[in-house]
């Protein structure tokens, strides 16, 4: 990472007593896809807002493309594109009009912005609805147009706040493919997500953020390599999950224990898990084991171990948050 396009040091943001971001530092190199992975309320949106000039940080230093904030925010804003967590285009204007308007905000003259808007509508499969009011778009179309709008001025860095939250699998896959293509064209991407699979699929480097702090930051390969050395085990119990988790948690403090929706316990450890002591302990405690199965190590295991948060909890929280 010789040339950092994003350089953030000790970024802090307080809202009254609430510490939204608590001393976050990281660098992102040109051409990287960098992901912020964390649960609801971790400080992802606040961080993006600070980096894009929508939030005035309480403390810390930000420089984007070598331009230091707050003095050079406007200049930096000319080179970044932002896709917010909820679409913020004009509902009463059509897709084409929205794109042209956004292009004009970046100073593109008419003869440039109209062909550019058409090109993006084509690229995002929106040409057919280009003349429909934005308010009448489906959620997936809205998200795609919002991404198109963020790209209208050919930014060097693209910020996306939970780009695939709330849209169907096919659209999400299309968006991920588009992001991959953009990155291949040299666009640096900073995204937030609470989908572990998304981070694993898209990002080169990932920061785990919890309660306003980065608890881990590394390349995907190193994180996965860590998972490789580790082992995971799925245990199907006779229904007494609470008791099983309690017994194992007390006796084996080095093992991370999570529960999956199928009613199994997922155990993860940094090194080889020994099956026999586990079974013995459960047996002594009167908990029956029906099945024990080795699970494929994944980013999820690393995330659960590092943050102590179960992936399922993040998804459940999302369900509540979005209705």
């Amino acid at each position: 990472m010789t040339s950092a396009v994003l350089d953030v040091r000790d970024l802090t943001k307080h809202y009254g007593d609430v510490v939204a971001v608590d001393g976050v530092s990281f660098r992102v190199g040109a051409g990287e896809i960098f992901g912020f992975l964390g649960p609801n309320g971790a400080g992802k949106t606040t961080t993006i807002n600070a980096l894009t000039g929508l939030v005035d940080p309480t403390g810390g230093e930000i420089s984007v493309l070598g331009l230091a904030y707050p003095g050079h925010i406007s200049e930096a804003q000319g080179h970044i594109g932002v896709v917010p967590d909820e679409s913020n285009l004009y509902g009463e204007m059509d897709g084409f009009g929205n794109l042209c308007f956004c292009a004009a905000l970046y100073g593109l003259p008419r003869r440039v912005r109209e062909p550019r808007a058409r090109e993006l509508l084509d690229r995002f499969d929106l040409a057919e609805v280009g003349r429909r009011p934005f308010a009448a778009y489906s959620r997936g179309m809205k998200r795609k147009l919002t991404i198109a709008a963020a790209l209208i001025h050919r930014p060097q860095i693209l910020f996306l706040d939970e780009p695939t939250t709330g849209i169907d699998v096919a659209s999400a896959r299309q968006i991920r493919r588009l992001l991959g293509d953009l990155n291949a064209d040299g666009v640096t991407i900073f995204l937030t997500t609470h989908y572990i699979e998304e981070a694993e699929r898209l990002c080169h480097r990932i920061a785990f953020i919890v309660a306003g702090r980065i608890v881990r930051i590394d390349t995907k390969e190193s994180l996965l390599a860590e998972a490789d050395g580790s082992s995971s085990l799925l245990l199907a119990l006779d229904g007494n999950l609470e008791e099983g988790a309690r017994l194992l948690g007390e006796s084996f403090p080095d093992i991370a224990i999570a529960r999956n929706p199928e009613g199994n316990l997922l155990l993860t450890a940094a090194d080889e898990l020994e099956l026999l002591p586990l079974l013995q302990r459960l047996n002594e405690g009167g908990v029956k084991v029906y099945e024990a199965r080795i699970a494929r190590p994944s980013l999820e295991d690393v995330f659960v171990r590092v943050t102590g948060i179960e992936a399922r909890e993040m998804k459940a929280a999302e369900g509540r948050g979005r209705g």
Partner: peptide, 14 residues
């Protein structure tokens, strides 16, 4: 309210 004002705040104009 509709957050479109954010667009304007994100534009590279003071």
């Amino acid at each position: 309210r509709h957050r479109s004002f954010e667009r304007l705040l994100l534009a590279p104009i003071g």
